[in-house]
Structures are given as structure tokens and as C-alpha cells.
């Protein structure tokens, strides 16, 4: 604890948190009204989003200014590191709930529904072979059959894209550590582009699923787990790409040096986290 005599930075009173709270109140109320077909719902919802965006710009902008102003010493830096690590852990647990749901239905629910008394008395002929849309899909007159998403087309390409983006991001990090600013900016730009291509492919895959495979969010438990897992992952890729874009802008503006660049590292950690989630997703959602 050699640096303990250093004063810890405590920020001035700030108006941003209360903006964030109002934003989330409108966001929550608007969403709850919207899903119940109340006309004002989407307006309230998007007003909340707008205030949230204002708040995020203002708040992170202030953090960047404070960082550039040299207010964050080594202990604040350590705090940021701890907090980003635990934030990512909380995200891991969020995905764990959905992966857990997938494992639970595949290992317990679907075999139980397709065997013994359930099969004999309730849903005769339900084989439970994965992937399936649940016993109600046996009634092919009411539920149109679907085609599952294959693993070795776009998803395999997307796996390569994300793995490559992890490499380009690490290359950018080495550039930063060696004060090669060109390598930093080029690496970041490549990573963001690869992320954008990934999202483009993902969007194409969704269109393909809805349009040609008849695979939709309401396609029983397969559709539910497929779209919720890949959808939340895609959302996290989007957030990660936005973070990296901010880091690219900051790099262009001359921020970061080989010693102080936690903002960059935090975005990189987050990017690697979405990378790892994708690998698990590729194996258990697309492949197996």
C-alpha cells in the first residue's frame, strides 16, 4: 500500500444520476405501457431512451475530462479495474440464466415431456428430438414446421470473424503499449469493422430465419432459446462496438498513453467477454 497517502478523488455533486433515474422511470413505464398496447407507451419509452443517451454522453464525457485532467490516480485506476471485472461477472450471470434455461429444457424438460406418462397420455408421438418447437408443434395443421439454423454456414463464419476481432484488438493494444498510434487506430478500426460485419451477418441470419426457415421467436422452446441467447449476445456486441468506437474517437483525439489507458482496456475486456459468450453460444446453440 505504497500509494495510500495519495488523496482519493471524490467527484463534485452531479446532476447526471438524477437524469438517469428519470430516464429509466420513463423507459420502464413506457415499455410496460407499450407492451400493453397503450398509445402513449412508445413515446414515453423513446423519451426515456433520449434522456438516457443524453445522460450517458454527459456522464462519460465528464469522466473522460476528469481522466484527461489527471484527477484519477493509481487507486482510482485500481477501483475502475475491480469494478469493470465485477460488472462483467454480473453480465456472465445474466447470460448464465438463459444458458441455464437452455440446458434445463434440453436435459430435463424435453425428455420428460416426450417419455412415460406425458408422452402416453398427453402428447402421443412427441419424440423430443432436439431441436423441436414443443409438443404443440405435433399439430402441423396449426403450427407450421420450421427448419433449424445450421452451424456451419454463417455462424461458423461469424465465429471466425469474432475470433479475428479479438486478435486485431490485442494487436491494437500492443500498438498502444509501444506508443505506435497508427497501429492502435488501425487495430481499433479493424475490430469495429469486424464487429459490424458480424452484426450484419447476424441480421441477415435473422431475416433468413424468419423468411425462409419459418424459425421465429415463438417457435416453441427452440425459437425462444435461440433468439433470446443470440439476441442478447448481439445486443452486447452492439454495446461493445459502441464502446470501441468511443475508444477510437478518443485515440484519434490523442487520449491514452502506454501507462494510462484503462478506458481502452475496459472496452477490450468487454469485447473479449462477448467473444467468449459467442464461443459457448456457437457450441451449445448452433452446433450441438
Amino acid at each position: 500500500m505504497s500509494e495510500t497517502l495519495e488523496r482519493y478523488f471524490v467527484p463534485e455533486p452531479s446532476r447526471f444520476p438524477i437524469f438517469g433515474s428519470v430516464a429509466l422511470l420513463l423507459f420502464g413505464a413506457g415499455a410496460a405501457l407499450w407492451v400493453n398496447q397503450v398509445k402513449a407507451g412508445p413515446w414515453i419509452f423513446f423519451l426515456g431512451i433520449a434522456i438516457l443517451i443524453y445522460m450517458l454522453f454527459g456522464w462519460f464525457g465528464q469522466v473522460v475530462r476528469e481522466s484527461q485532467g489527471g484527477k484519477y490516480g493509481t487507486r482510482v485506476d485500481a477501483s475502475f479495474r475491480w469494478s469493470m471485472g465485477w460488472f462483467i461477472f454480473s453480465e456472465v450471470m445474466f447470460f448464465a440464466a438463459f444458458f441455464g434455461a437452455l440446458f434445463y429444457v434440453r436435459v430435463l424438460t424435453v425428455p420428460a415431456l416426450s417419455s412415460g406418462e406425458n408422452e402416453a397420455l398427453l402428447w402421443q408421438g412427441y419424440s423430443g428430438a432436439w431441436p423441436n418447437a414443443g409438443p404443440r408443434a405435433l399439430d402441423t395443421a396449426a403450427v407450421e414446421p420450421f427448419t433449424p439454423m445450421g452451424a456451419w454456414g454463417i455462424p461458423a463464419i461469424n465465429t471466425l470473424i469474432l475470433l479475428t476481432s479479438g486478435a486485431t484488438l490485442t494487436w491494437a493494444h500492443y500498438g498502444l503499449l509501444k506508443d505506435k498510434r497508427g497501429q492502435l487506430k488501425l487495430g481499433l478500426l479493424l475490430t469495429i469493422l469486424l464487429g459490424a460485419i458480424f452484426l450484419g451477418f447476424q441480421a441477415y441470419e435473422y431475416v433468413h430465419a424468419y423468411g425462409e426457415l419459418n424459425l421465429r421467436l415463438d417457435t416453441g422452446i427452440y425459437g425462444s432459446t435461440f433468439f433470446m441467447l443470440t439476441g442478447f449476445h448481439g445486443l452486447h456486441v452492439t454495446v461493445g462496438a459502441i464502446m470501441l468506437t468511443v475508444m477510437l474517437c478518443r485515440a484519434v483525439a490523442g487520449h491514452f498513453n502506454s501507462q494510462h489507458h484503462f478506458g481502452f482496456e475496459a472496452a477490450a475486456w468487454y469485447w473479449h467477454f462477448v467473444d467468449v459468450v459467442w464461443l459457448i453460444l456457437f457450441v451449445v446453440v448452433y452446433w450441438l
Binding site: V35, A97, F98, T109, V110, D218, G220, I221, T225, M228
Partner: peptide, 25 residues
Amino acid sequence: AGAVTMILTDRHFGTSFFNAAGGGD
């Protein structure tokens, strides 16, 4: 958060996490 999100999508977006007819539980 994940659990209540699944309830939300089961309620409004047609997922079957907790619906046996759709293969959920």
C-alpha cells in the same frame, strides 16, 4: 433479471420458456 425477462417475453413476445406446450417448463 433474466428470470423476469423470460416472463416478459413469455407474456408478450410468444416465447415458451415456461409453457409446456411449447417445450418449456
